[in-house]
Amino acid sequence: MDQHIDIKVKVWRQAGPKAEGHFETYELKHIFQGASFLEMIDILNEQLISEHKDPIAFDHDCREGICGMCSMYVNGHPHGPDSAITTCQLHMRKFKNGETITIEPWRSRAFPVIKDLMVDREAYDKIMQAGGFVSVNTGGIPDANAIPIPKADADEAMDAASCIGCGACAAACKNGSAMLFVSAKVSQLALLPQGKVEAAARAKAMVAKMDELGFGNCTNTGACAAECPKEVSLANIARLNREFLCAKLKD
């Protein structure tokens, strides 16, 4: 049964991109375990505002797990200790009475902190702009079965397309590598006929942009897939490697 708990929240506070950051600990009383994690932060911010303090800046938008904005590193896990969910889908019942919860922003050179828990994830947009699309207008939805696509391929493309670009993969990776994200974006198109035409050029362009932006080199630890809120598979990384290497060998 959900109860009311008293907790301490240790939050990273950083006034701006250039400012030195530090941890600040706040006490919160009587938090309902049925509340979502972001609602708990809202309550904390109400409390801070009533004390005439600066509220904690954090990204959030849809609050239903599809936009990928809520980037928080909770107790050592991106999107918190639960699996296959985003921070907004995390509930306070995952925490115990008297617990101290540590909340940090994504820490990666390519994701600089804007303020407190808010980071700049434009790097992912830049990678998408480098080739994460089909260049020509493919028209409206074709008739079902007009272009035959094996079910297995369609399923894998769909699973790769479930990536919401939240940045948890690069945040969790000890190498700060964005390979899971890039591989998901390359895979979702490379597996389908419309995207296959540009697969080689896309893989090269997106990997080049990823390297340029300062993401690290993947060492296949699997931390990304373990923390991904959409459970995007590590197998996509093998496909990206294959696409990239084949493209380079053809040059």
């Binding site: 590193y73 940090e104 820490r107 000890k174 060492t219």
Partner: peptide
């Protein structure tokens, strides 16, 4: 890879 992690390390 160390550089790509950025200057601040995770506390937890």
């Amino acid at each position: 890879n160390r550089l790509a992690r950025g200057k601040d390390r995770y506390a937890v």
